[in-house]
């Protein structure tokens, strides 16, 4: 195999991996920090993509402003959903099951609302100005938008790691994950913290949607298609672990990219195989300390 193909294939795997990570980052945050299993996370990804479409294609806003606004918009919808519905089931017996049921209902509701507002036609966004070309090194041909996405992924992983471990709000959020009551007695408004964490997580999902829109199809049902892969990534990386999610996404993306190149017929089996193998040998995720193996 020649070297330039290796690089090209690796970078294409990275593009897929980064978009996967960006969706999974919100999921790992809400999972690891908020202890909420948000099955509807993919729907917020879809909502973000539609917001992006509305802002750029209909209202003709600048793509970068639209990207931020789409993230904020999805975050607002998320906070609304959390404070109206999810908050009511915290602390119930079998909370996990109720979370699945409730967020599943959210998927159903959001899907239809999107259909009511934007219809069922496929939508698409052009790549932003300045990023429609490609960078070439000899034989290697790399679309600049793909490179940009990879860079944004790195920024997000570093920033969220820094916020969570080095700043006060981040530390509060992590403490709330471990012991809600204790943090509450220390005078922190736990419900508000939860709402904010949920808002940030869904905003990350929404931003991923808007960022992916120029490369993908904006369509109803887009959410349900990314959720399982993102779950895989979150579990591979260890829940709540941003670096883990990033590396997990890269693992899935690269395994997929080279499976496509060498065993194209069976490529679609590989992401599940990776997950099965990792979970059998290191169930707590590749990048977490060994501590969760309990009954």
């Amino acid at each position: 195999m020649d070297f330039s193909f290796f690089i090209t294939q690796a970078i294409s795997g990275m593009t897929m991996a980064t978009l996967l990570f960006l969706v999974a980052s919100g999921l790992t945050l809400i999972f690891g920090v908020g202890n909420v299993f948000n099955f509807a996370h993919g729907s917020f990804y879809m909502v973000g993509a539609y917001f992006g479409y509305q802002l750029v294609a209909i209202w003709e806003l600048n793509f970068w402003i639209a990207l931020v606004l789409a993230g904020l918009g999805a975050g607002l919808v998320g906070m609304l959903a959390e404070s109206l519905f999810l908050r009511r089931i915290y602390g119930r017996v079998n909370e996990g099951g109720f979370q699945i049921l409730l967020t599943y209902c959210l998927i159903l509701i959001i899907d239809d609302l999107v259909k009511l507002i934007w219809g069922t036609e496929y939508k698409s966004l052009p790549r932003p100005k300045g990023f429609s070309g490609a960078v070439t090194f000899g034989d290697i041909y790399l679309p600049s938008y793909n490179l940009l996405i990879i860079a944004i992924g790195v920024v997000v992983v570093v920033a969220s790691w820094w916020i969570l471990t080095r700043t006060r709000p981040g530390k509060i959020a992590r403490a709330a994950a471990v012991d809600r009551e204790m943090v509450d007695t220390l005078g922190v408004n736990v419900p508000l913290t939860m709402t904010l964490v949920f808002g940030i997580a869904t905003a990350l999902g929404g931003m991923a949607g808007a960022l992916a829109a120029p490369l993908r199809t904006v369509t109803p049902g887009a959410g349900i298609e990314v959720i399982i892969d993102s779950l895989i990534v979150v579990v591979l990386g260890g829940m709540g672990n941003f670096w883990g999610a990033w590396l997990g996404a890269i693992l899935v993306g690269e395994v997929n990219a080279f499976a496509v190149a060498f065993v194209p017929k069976w490529a679609s089996l590989f992401s599940f195989l990776v997950m099965v193998i990792v979970l059998i040998f290191k169930p707590e995720g590749l990048f977490s300390p060994r501590q969760v193996r309990k009954v």
């Binding site: 992916a212 298609e225 496509v260 190149a261 017929k265 490529a267 679609s268």
Partner: peptide, 22 residues
């Protein structure tokens, strides 16, 4: 020279594309 089978509704085809180019 090549035969590729991505999943239906797969959101991402870049790896397939670079492989087809090869």
């Amino acid at each position: 020279v090549g035969e590729y089978w991505p999943k239906i509704y797969a959101p991402d085809y870049t790896s397939y594309i670079t492989s087809i180019l090869k």
